[in-house]
Design a protein around this nucleic acid. Structure first.
Lengths: 137, 137
DNA sequence: CCATATTAATTACCTGGGTAACTATTATGC
DNA sequence: GCATAATAGTTACCCAGGTAATTAATATGG
């Protein structure tokens, strides 16, 4: 029955981390889901929405919404592909320019969240989570 | 920069677990947030909405919504307290009767989610998560 | 070649969680 | 005792993520 604590604690942790990240991103005009998309686009370049969904394990509809908000803010562009069904997404120059600032804010936030949580524990936790997730997918 | 994976994986894990739990609860007409409220009420008896929020670390508005849905379904009752601002929440007889069935379904779901994830890892994971969460709150 | 199936993206609508603003009630300070 | 502050709960409105149904474009089988 210690099971219950495992699930409950994971849920709480996830909420805490998302809330704190959102708070850190607020002054930059971004939300956590937007940041995750921007981060992927920054490393992968121009990719389709479908690929974005696959990288982030998110369904298409929420991805559409997140991208539409980013388009409205001028941080992302949608380009029609050769296959006219798909849309290629890429960062705008504005977003590329702002990226280092965003990345720094996220890094600082993560550092703060990890103070007093030993690095060895971080590694162990990451390993265990990765193992479990692999089992589930 | 392995940091990133830690946060990302935790987020994915949390989503997976919630989605699977919701799927398991679907045939019973419940959602994960409702179940968490029912679980607390079953162990604590009659408590105020405020106390429910504190146990589950949830803000008042989402709690109001979850409770209203439970009231509509006839699983929960709201009783005015001596302090007329507060409302005491308790399970109905219907809910008490159904509880074992619900608990069993959740237990089965959790077991399924944990197959191939060794018990020693579960314990280690629970310990690390608990430590981290304690640092954050 | 054309009808049918599949696919990428969108729309509409749901739960879950958050903040801000509001209401009603109780506590508090003068 | 009464004006003011604090508190419990609600409402309205966000973001994040999910399913079901729809649309437009491409693949596929006869």
């Amino acid at each position: 029955m210690t099971n219950h604590a495992l699930f409950h604690t994971l849920h709480q942790l996830s909420r805490q981390l998302t809330n704190q990240l959102n708070e850190a991103l607020k002054p930059l005009g971004l939300y956590s889901a937007q940041w995750s998309v921007i981060f992927v686009l920054h490393t992968k370049g121009s990719i389709t929405q479908k690929e974005l969904c696959e990288y982030l394990f998110v369904e298409a509809p929420p991805m559409t919404r997140t991208i539409q908000r980013l388009v409205k803010q001028g941080f992302v562009r949608q380009l029609p592909g050769k296959d006219k069904r798909e849309k290629y997404i890429q960062l705008t120059e504005e977003a590329v320019k702002e990226f280092p600032k965003w990345e720094h804010a996220v890094f600082e936030c993560n550092q703060t969240l990890l103070t007093n949580f030993p690095q060895s524990s971080q590694q162990e936790l990451a390993k265990l989570q990765g193992l479990w997730l692999k089992e589930l997918l």
